[in-house]
């Protein structure tokens, strides 16, 4: 499986202060790779998520490091044909209509006029906005604008979708629409790289996650493996042989095997051993606290 996005040793610092300049390092050697998967990028506010995304998209210039998209440097404009991007809290000129914005995107990608209507309809159905495309964007709600822009990012059928906080500002219906489209894209073999602070969504959607805290990548792992690493204990469900009533007990890691041995010796049948793990949110919080940050 080839690397779709490769970020290596990315560093970025900003100068602060008017007369006396001091440097604040925002990204400290950030490295990770994204394959054909849903990759969640999580971290607290100010951790460097948006700065990393801006560097990937070429809006800011890193002090050090390299970013490759489909093996080419991110500064190569041609790679953007295969990429869709949605920024956080996106804005579009409100005096234009939804269709005019879609037309703009179609013009950029050179989509012929006779194909447009069908494509627009398919995308608008996906984000449940059919019938509003002729209306000015000023009459849309924030969530509708975000859904329209999300649909527009799919117009070029991107191989990689980069989304900065795609769920923020959306109501539960909007979030569920975006989540289902992301899953659909994964099924089609496309890669999705997205940042979010809604950890439940990340846990639900992502194959792998990277945790960034204070400009440093703390961990890159699959969600399932990450959660299994943070098992805090187990719930053991058991019963006396020949009896139907179930008993249960919570034990920690160290107590598990002696307790199971004890049950076996005493003639109990073990029905289920269910691991109790920290949620992704708890794991993120523990990383933030471990780095001296605030939640």
């Amino acid at each position: 499986m080839g690397k779709v996005l490769e970020v290596s040793k990315l560093r970025k610092a900003y100068s602060l202060g008017f007369l006396v300049k001091r440097k604040k390092e925002i990204l400290k050697s950030v490295s990770f790779s994204v394959f054909n998967e849903i990759f969640g990028f999580i971290g607290p506010n100010g951790a460097g998520k948006t700065t990393t995304i801006k560097a990937i998209m070429g809006f800011i210039f890193p002090d050090h490091g390299e970013i490759r998209v489909f093996g080419k440097l991110n500064t190569d404009v041609s790679v953007k044909r295969k990429v869709g991007f949605l920024p956080e809290r996106p804005y579009v000129p409100l005096s234009i209509t939804g269709k005019e914005y879609l037309d703009f995107c179609a013009d950029v990608y050179g989509i012929p006029y006779y194909e447009r209507r069908k494509k627009y309809l398919k995308l608008l159905e996906l984000v449940e906005l059919v019938g509003v495309e002729e209306r000015k964007l000023s009459s849309y709600s924030k969530g509708m604008v975000q859904r329209l822009l999300f649909a527009a990012t799919l117009l070029n059928e991107p191989e990689l979708l980069i989304l900065d906080e795609p769920m923020s500002g959306l109501d539960p219906v909007g979030r569920s629409i975006i989540a289902s489209v992301i899953r659909k894209l994964k099924e089609e073999g496309k890669a999705v790289f997205y940042s979010s602070h809604i950890i439940q969504d990340v846990e639900r959607l992502s194959d792998r996650v990277a945790i960034i805290v204070g400009g440093e990548i703390k961990l890159v792992d699959s969600v399932s493996s990450l959660i299994s690493k943070f098992i805090t204990g187990y719930t053991v469900v058991y019963r006396k042989v020949g009896e139907s009533s179930l008993l249960s007990k919570e034990v920690n890691r160290q107590e598990l095997w002696p307790f199971l041995e004890k049950l076996r010796k005493e003639g109990y049948e073990i029905v289920e051993v269910e691991p109790k793990s920290l949620s992704l949110e708890d794991i993120l919080v523990s990383f933030i606290k471990g780095s001296g940050g605030t939640v």
Partner: peptide, 10 residues
């Protein structure tokens, strides 16, 4: 930041 949407395209 509309420029982000424009410059994210080719």
């Amino acid at each position: 930041k509309f420029v982000y949407l424009i410059l994210s395209k080719p």
